[in-house]
Amino acid sequence: MDSERQQSMRRRPRRLRTDGIRPLVSETTLSPQDLIAPVFVDATTDDRQPIESMPGHERVPVAEAVDRVEEVRETGVEAIILFGIPESKDETGSRAWADDGVVQRATRQITDETDAYVITDVCLCEYTSHGHCGVLEASAPEDAHVTVDNDRTLDLLGKIARSHASAGADMVAPSGMMDGMVDAIRRSLDGEGFEHVPVMSYAAKYESAFYGPFRDAADGAPAFGDRRHYQMDPANAREASREVSLDVEQGADVLMVKPALPYLDVIADVRREFDHPVAAYNVSGEYAMLHAAAEKGWLDLDAVARESLLSIKRAGADLILTYFAESVAEQL
């Protein structure tokens, strides 16, 4: 018995938890270079507009896009993803690919005046009058089950990506979960000489209840119906592998899982199965709920924000899109 006790006491994991050795044996690291900061540019305003459900974030006018990006870069974060709120909307979201569109104008200014790495969101939900991610099938607007016409939407996604690349985007990120979207975008980019522009696909994007604050920020909530016919069922994990495989076959350069914290198992599965860089989107609802708890005094915001991002990195994400990018980068 004494011998067994002596054997067990030789194994003391606590020996490697003291201050001197702890950082040397840390298995997961987090740095500002791992983070991508979302930036909202609004063509309908001349002043910064606070986003009530996302404390600390604002919509900024195009004229202040460069200043906003410089604020991000001062924290050590080098990459941003742009979302646009256009001056007008229509059934097809035609302002999404306009040469003088909000994202196109902001991208030109940011790439001309900063060294930020600019990623652009390629989708139609912020630009369509109905708030869906593409052209609608021929159904009455009051039909709650109306959904997006997948194949008619693909050409439009190609046009959007091409217009973003022409404006100077370093990477495009299709987020609509249309079947064949990566192939359509890759063909469109390559056909115009943009073979060098990578595609970060929202490869496994779930129809999640955690998107609410973002829809306030980007003015992109559906006017009717929902997105369950094109975004993934939260109950499914094996389906994510099939979705990601298709995007890999079509030429995706980076694979994204969205949301992040409720889908750490999916991030880990994608990391194991594919050798591409894996991104995870720490979404607006994840951000807002930690802020709400901190405002109640129930949590230390800085501590839980950093721990959350560390868990996403530990699950296998190489890149993290997060509204905590600036505050966590300053801690790091």
Rank of each mutant, 00 (worst) to 15 (best):
Q6P: 00
Q7K: 15
P13F: 04
P13D: 09
R17W: 10
D19N: 12
D19G: 08
G20S: 11
R22C: 09
V25M: 09
P32C: 12
Q33D: 15
D42S: 07
D42T: 06
D47Y: 11
M54S: 08
G56L: 08
H57T: 14
V62A: 06
A63M: 07
V66T: 13
R68C: 02
E71V: 01
E71W: 01
E74L: 07
E74S: 14
A79K: 13
I80A: 09
F83G: 08
E91Q: 15
E91P: 10
G93I: 05
R95Q: 14
R95I: 04
A106W: 01
A106R: 02
A106P: 07
A106L: 05
R108S: 08
R108E: 14
T114K: 01
D115K: 13
Y127I: 07
T128Y: 11
T128L: 12
S129M: 09
G131K: 11
G134F: 09
S139N: 13
T147V: 07
N150K: 08
L156D: 04
G158W: 01
K159E: 14
I160A: 02
A165P: 00
A165L: 00
S166D: 14
S166G: 06
A169Q: 04
A173W: 00
P174L: 10
P174D: 11
S175W: 02
G176E: 02
D179E: 15
L189I: 05
D190R: 13
E192V: 05
H196F: 04
P198Q: 05
S201E: 01
A203I: 05
K205H: 03
Y206N: 07
Y206E: 05
S208A: 05
P213G: 03
D216S: 09
A218K: 02
D219G: 08
G220A: 15
Q231I: 08
D233E: 12
A235E: 11
R238G: 06
E243P: 00
S245C: 07
G251P: 07
M256L: 14
V257W: 06
V257M: 10
L264T: 14
L264S: 13
F274M: 11
F274A: 10
P277G: 02
V278P: 00
V278E: 05
Y281A: 00
Y281S: 00
A288G: 01
A293I: 07
K296H: 15
G297T: 11
W298N: 10
D300Y: 02
V304C: 04
V304Q: 01
R306I: 03
S308M: 06
L310A: 06
I312T: 05
K313C: 09
L321I: 11
F324H: 01
A325E: 00
E326R: 08
E326W: 00
